[in-house]
């Protein structure tokens, strides 16, 4: 059998040791080794964004990384946000604005938006739309996703203890092919 590597992945603040082959993608390791199935797979070639997680605070496609490359990085998945009983403000905004139908794309959009808003808390709606255009949704037509993110952003700006100013790397958006 193919060689296995022992890696330590830091996911949602917890360290996990696991044995993986060199070709095991990060998204497969998260989903099928750590059973964090909230991160989804829609294409495996870096376009749809269903697999978006935060790597050291910036949105990244977990299908384009190998698990062995993720050692020593701070990985955050949708499971790090709120729970069904107490969703976080962004998750609540998605629900309030009907920003999801089937919900398959949702974890990817949530993590994309978390990463984006952390680095760009004052983003305009047009900038949010631009950021959101990195991922695909087949159900909603995007309008409500943009509105949910925008609403959450403005509420965060109004909240007294804003997290604004936190040093977070610029998210890797705009690296995605779009219709000509």
């Amino acid at each position: 059998m193919t060689d296995q590597y022992l890696v330590t992945l830091t996911v949602n603040g917890e360290d996990h040791e696991l044995l993986v082959t060199a070709r095991r993608t990060l998204v497969d390791a998260l989903r099928h080794d750590l059973h964090l199935t909230g991160t989804h797979v829609g294409c495996e070639h870096g376009v749809c964004g269903a697999c978006t997680i935060l790597v050291d605070g910036a949105p990244a496609r977990a299908c384009l990384m190998f698990a062995v490359q993720a050692e020593g990085r701070d990985l955050r998945t949708v499971e790090s946000l709120g729970s069904p009983d107490s969703p976080n403000d962004l998750q609540r905004a998605f629900s309030e604005h009907h920003a999801l139908q089937c919900g398959f794309c949702t974890p990817g959009f949530l993590m994309l938006a978390e990463g984006f808003l952390a680095s760009r808390p004052r983003a305009t709606k047009a900038e949010i739309r631009e950021a959101v255009s990195a991922n695909l949704c087949r159900c909603t037509g995007y309008q409500t996703i943009v509105e949910a993110v925008d609403d959450c952003a403005s509420r965060r700006r109004c909240a007294p203890d804003t997290t604004e100013g936190e040093a977070t790397p610029e998210p890797g958006q705009n690296d995605t092919p779009r219709p000509a």
Partner: peptide, 21 residues
């Protein structure tokens, strides 16, 4: 009425076919 489906879907706790082991 707020969607019954949302709490599990926005938290990554939906169960899609590839989530089944």
């Amino acid at each position: 009425v707020p969607r019954r489906e949302d709490p599990r879907l926005v938290t990554g706790r939906g169960r899609f076919v590839d989530d089944i082991t």
